[in-house]
Design a protein around this nucleic acid. Structure first.
Lengths: 223, 223
DNA sequence: TTGACAATCGAACATATGTTCGATTATAAT
DNA sequence: ATTATAATCGAACATATGTTCGATTGTCAA
């Protein structure tokens, strides 16, 4: 006969998590439990310890026992965001879909790019994914073979956004600036000297993501 | 009458600095002075304190007194590199030169880009500089208006490297893949559909830097 | 209402950790 | 050799900080 159902994480816990991050960013070392207590208005160190134990059991923090300031966020404070590289992007192949449920191998350097946090939009960073451009088919988007394209998964787009599009009838993937009008869609290449494509209303068009960033590393590759 | 000349930082000091960085990266909090001592084979905590005082006076570390693990590198451990943006790059204007002596305003977000350390070559990161592309003149290098180009300052280039070049006679700045042959230089655009430029031996040509990276942030800019 | 457990408190405790200081040894300039 | 100062040591000290535990209060389910 269970009495009270164990609640999940409450506001206090999130307050602590937030404080840990903030404090670390400011001091470059973690707070003591008494400092945490002061922040959440709790005097009793054992009470704070109690909270920390819960957070640890939930896998949100890690603790080194008997070590001063031995508390840290499970996902350490960092100024970079690891973005998984799902696969290649090329004209002839569909765009891989990002499933936020799946844990990608972001630990492996080969399958992720690290982007400085300051360069990314504040929202929804966890959902970003990256693709590696294969071949020259994105050249009209000013994107080269080998470039890394960072995308935010979306199904809709506003006018003027650069989006990754799959055209089922043509079996073609493309990156274009997107415009919608009464007749259908207008897809403009980033390279202004190239002609836009018009897609009639009747033709299906799947928006897979919005381009947030392009990174090109250049290492002595002859052309 | 001074007796012994005060030496600068010795090997021990650098060993400590190195340890601080290493330890922080591994534990996500700084070491105690006794842990530092263990690393440099010094028992006496006052001796370690003595070293730390020296390092602090030299401005290499900062200490919070009476705070456990209150030691940190003056330049905190970070996984991003701040690269100063020296100015614009465009066809008609010369390339700004990077002077490693000058301290650029890298604190100001507007004048620097942060690049994840993992994306950069290991050597000479402090010397890198960035330029913001203005206009469409770099379009044949697959580089767009607003892109950030990261460069390493060099005066010479090997074949196949992408370099920033100033052509004094034409008063023109350009980004091209560089090749040298018996007749002079061949400058190839990154866009393979465009024609290379041949520069005769007689014409002066100043190499200003080697392109290491291109970053394009895309925020809803219509085209 | 009552039992069971969660939440909270407070105080005592153990020790991890920075600080201080006097003494000793090493080094270089005179 | 002498001397002033740097370098080093060791031990005592003060306290910052994590841990433990018994007691009290709050809250839900039976």
């Amino acid at each position: 006969m269970m009495a009270r159902k164990p609640k999940g994480l409450t506001e206090v816990h999130y307050k602590i998590l937030h404080f840990l991050e903030e404090y670390q960013r400011e001091h470059h070392y973690p707070p003591t439990i008494r400092e945490i207590g002061k922040h959440i208005n709790v005097e009793s160190t054992s009470q704070i310890n109690y909270y920390l134990d819960q957070l640890e059991r939930h896998g949100r923090i890690e603790r080194d026992r008997n070590v001063s300031r031995g508390v840290r966020l499970a996902r350490p404070v960092s100024d970079v965001v690891r973005i998984p590289i799902l696969g290649p992007i090329a004209a002839g192949i569909p765009i891989p879909v990002f499933d936020p449920g799946v844990s990608y191998l972001t630990d492996d350097e080969a399958f992720a790019v690290e982007i400085a946090s300051s360069l990314l939009p504040a929202a929804d960073r966890e959902k970003l994914f990256a693709l590696e451009v294969q071949g020259d088919s994105m050249i009209d988007a000013m994107i080269n073979n080998g470039d890394i394209v960072v995308l935010k998964p979306v199904n809709e787009a506003h006018n003027g956004e650069m989006v990754a599009i799959w055209l089922p009838e043509r079996e073609e993937t493309t990156l274009k600036y997107f415009y919608r009008d009464k007749d259908g869609y207008l897809l403009k290449p980033a390279n202004p000297s190239m002609q836009p494509i018009r897609i009639p209303k009747s033709e299906p068009l799947e928006i897979k993501g919005k381009v947030v960033m392009v990174v090109r590393r250049i290492e002595n590759v002859a052309v």
